[in-house]
Simulated scan of single mutants.
Amino acid sequence: MSAEVKASVLHGAKDLRLETRPLPPLTPNDVRIAVKTTGLCGSDLHYYNHFRNGDIIVREPLTLGHESAGIVTAVGSAVTNLAPGDKVALEVGQPCEQCNLCLQGRYNICPEMKFRSSAKAWPHAQGTLQEEIVHPGKWCHKLPEGVSLEDGALVEPMAVALHALQRARLEEGAKVLVFGAGTVGLLCAAVSKVVSKARVVIADIQEERVKFATENGFADEGVVVPMKKRPETIEEKLSFAKEVAEMVGEKMGQVDGTFECTGVESCLQAAIYATAPGGKVMIIGMGNPIQTLPISAASIREVDLVGVFRYANAYPKVIELLASGLGSKLPGLNQLITQRFAGIESIPDAFAMAGRVKDDDGNLVIKVLVNM
């Protein structure tokens, strides 16, 4: 008889229910993980608030959560790199491992990818906001001594940032602009500074977030994007984007690479204007799928627009960075987790908090964590 575990299950917009479900059997290549900590991210919030994420509509009850770490409780007979008691960060995407993209190492864009907590695959791949999961041992990354389970939950968004940096291929000492001072934007700034020794300017509409980034060493300079009357026409939008690019230029000049982490049309427009000839704009944020861009401003200056989707082959490097003392190189990393909730019963409250700008005590809400 299979074991049963408690799971948080989304049945509709803001309709989370605590249910019991059976665990699948442990195959020779699988491990069983007691999920200990999970961070909530933007895609989780979209599903929670709207029962969809953009064009992806939920078609069956869905357990959310994918930024997770836990402890191994059992291993399959063919698993040799893990043992019960090991701490692991969970890489929750499961590609086919057979298509050309997988064989090239670009498994993050495998057409058959099954990613936990995403409703894109059918049946949906259930997420990690449950007591235990069974997961392929290949995609469970052992955490060394000194790397905590909470650090392990941050590996997933850090992998997004590192993957973006690797695709940007910036030279050491490059000038970098980051749009969006949320978790992913802050981590893009962090890995740029630590890995590429970059000088970083970060931009956001919230002054408190910009201040957090500069005061905690994520960025060297900050720009608060003005909240003016929303521009309506294309001309007004592009004029505003140029204004924002000029604000960035006053701090850092034109930049070699821009990490656009908001998905907001005006930010992507401004990113093109702010990036120097021959530079790169990394498109990380998932916003409106149809946007108007000043494409000639990119093409005549050979500014490359580079898509970034999740990550591939990044987890080991991120864990290595954490083990080597990334926190000591960037003290603010330990402050990214701003609110913690305890127990599976607290998950609805955690989602309610994750959708806020500040908590009841006036503290910024950046990364909300559920500790099981």
Rank of each mutant, 00 (worst) to 15 (best):
A13S: 02
K14R: 06
R17Y: 03
T20Y: 11
P25Q: 09
L26K: 00
P28Y: 11
I33N: 03
A34S: 13
G39R: 02
C41T: 13
C41F: 09
L45R: 10
H50M: 02
H50N: 04
L62C: 04
L62K: 01
H66A: 09
S68Q: 04
I71V: 15
T73F: 01
G76I: 15
T80N: 15
T80A: 15
K87L: 12
E91N: 02
E91R: 00
G93H: 02
G93N: 04
P95K: 07
N100T: 13
L101W: 09
Q104R: 13
G105D: 14
G105W: 14
H124I: 08
H124G: 01
E131T: 12
V134L: 08
K142I: 13
L143P: 04
P144R: 04
V147K: 04
S148G: 07
S148R: 02
V155Y: 10
A161I: 07
L162K: 05
A164L: 03
L165S: 11
Q166G: 09
L170Q: 12
K175I: 14
V178L: 08
F179W: 08
A181K: 01
A181H: 02
T183P: 04
T183D: 08
L187W: 03
A189W: 05
S192G: 06
K193V: 10
S196A: 15
I205F: 14
V210G: 09
F212M: 08
T214V: 15
F218A: 03
D220W: 02
G222L: 00
K229D: 12
E232S: 10
T233A: 12
F240H: 13
F240P: 06
V255Y: 03
T258K: 00
V264K: 03
G278H: 10
M282Q: 11
I290E: 14
A297I: 14
A297M: 10
S299R: 08
I300G: 01
D304Q: 08
V318E: 12
I319T: 08
A342L: 06
E345P: 03
P348R: 03
G355L: 03
K358A: 02
D360V: 06
G362C: 06
N363V: 11
V365R: 00
K367D: 08
V370H: 14
